[in-house]
């Protein structure tokens, strides 16, 4: 029996310790949003947040997440209101997805990026997202949506910036 947090809830899974986390989440917990793409950790379709880090779960034995926090695409929206995360809203507004298959993984990696770096440069975005493949070529829109979400979050936070305050005064 392996216990971990899945989208904020403690869960127990009676599965073999070497079963990849992706298949535990998809087949045991029936959350189908995370996808199988390559089975070698090369494409990022299976990405989930493990303690906040974007992690390739098609090659991660479930035993490795014992007592850790796992967040999937299903855990990005607000649990009570079902309101989409800022990034998800930007994804919809910019019509990012095409076939959509890789997008769960893209959103997970983008979420990890903005959590650690709220104002990423183009190079930061390239660096954080290069592990997530998209065959439809949605990269330009992914980048736009990440920037839009970052700007929106920055605007909503109203951090006190003494230089801005000075400039206004």
């Amino acid at each position: 029996m392996i216990s971990f947090q899945l989208n904020g809830q403690r869960v127990d899974a009676d599965v073999p310790a070497d079963m990849p986390l992706l298949w535990v989440v998809r087949d045991h917990f029936k959350l189908k949003g995370s996808k199988f793409g390559c089975g070698m950790g090369l494409c990022g379709a299976c990405s989930m947040l493990v303690d906040g880090q974007s992690t390739r779960t098609c090659i991660l034995p479930v035993a490795a997440v014992a007592n850790r926090a796992v967040t999937t695409i299903e855990g990005l929206a607000d649990k009570d209101s079902q309101q989409l995360s800022t990034l998800q809203q930007a994804w919809v507004a910019h019509s990012v997805p095409q076939c959509g298959y890789c997008q769960s993984g893209q959103l997970i990696s983008a979420t990890a990026l903005l959590n650690s770096n709220p104002a990423p440069s183009d190079a930061d975005i390239d660096n954080a997202m290069q592990g997530n493949l998209c065959r439809c070529g949605t990269y330009p829109r992914i980048k736009q949506a990440i920037k839009a979400a970052a700007e929106q979050t920055a605007a909503a936070v109203h951090t006190f910036d003494p230089r801005q305050a000075e400039a206004k005064a």
Binding site: G33, S34, I73, A77, V92, A93, P97, G100
Partner: peptide
């Protein structure tokens, strides 16, 4: 915005 965007941004597109 694309009509299938929401399902594909929430992992619910089947």
């Amino acid at each position: 915005p694309r009509l299938d965007g929401h399902a594909k941004a929430t992992g619910t597109a089947e």
